[in-house]
């Protein structure tokens, strides 16, 4: 483990919490000199599972996949704009697959030494099937993980409020 960190990865899922984690990661990368990576995973695994269980029809899967890609592009552009506002280079990528598997593979492939996530759920159920992707990443990431809580201060720092 390297301290301070040399490569930080932030996982984007389209939620406000992940934007919060992104902004925190930008400030952290800026202050430590680390390289920042941002990855949005289009959850094609879930789309495929929904078709197999008859919850989605093929046409619906195609529509959602297109919408998720648009959502991914929008969030990646936003990440690039926020990083640029702090004069920071950012490596961005949109990847298809199962979010926690994609992120774990990315960590290994790019020698990431810190994963930044938005909030994880309060434990309200012991049912494994209700575990969120953030929870899975937190539990299985091979590197240190930072969980970024909601904070108005970060949004003010970026002039996003």
């Amino acid at each position: 483990m390297k301290v301070p960190y040399s490569r930080i990865l932030v996982y984007l899922d389209g939620s406000e919490g992940s934007i919060n984690a992104l902004m925190y990661s930008i400030l952290l990368a800026k202050s430590t000199g680390a390289q920042l990576h941002a990855v949005y995973v289009v959850n094609t695994k879930a789309l495929g599972d929904l078709v197999r269980s008859h919850i989605f029809v093929d046409q619906e899967k195609a529509e959602y996949q297109a919408d998720l890609r648009k959502d991914a592009s929008r969030h990646i552009r936003h990440a690039e704009r926020l990083a640029s506002s702090k004069d920071l280079d950012i490596v961005t990528e949109v990847i298809d697959g199962s979010p926690h598997h994609v992120i774990l593979d990315y960590i290994k492939a790019h020698s990431i030494d810190l994963l930044a996530l938005g909030p994880v759920n309060v434990i309200r159920s012991r049912r494994d099937e209700l575990t969120s992707e953030n929870d899975r990443m937190l539990r299985t990431a091979p590197c240190p993980v930072i969980v970024v809580r909601e904070s108005d201060d970060i949004w003010e720092e970026f002039g996003e409020v």
């Binding site: 389209g14 939620s15 969120s132």
Partner: peptide
């Protein structure tokens, strides 16, 4: 405007329903 959240909720129900 939130396809990601919808997919996540449907997916969780489908997983729970598989038990």
């Amino acid at each position: 405007d939130n396809p990601s959240e919808h997919v996540q909720i449907l997916s969780s129900i489908a997983k729970a329903a598989s038990s």
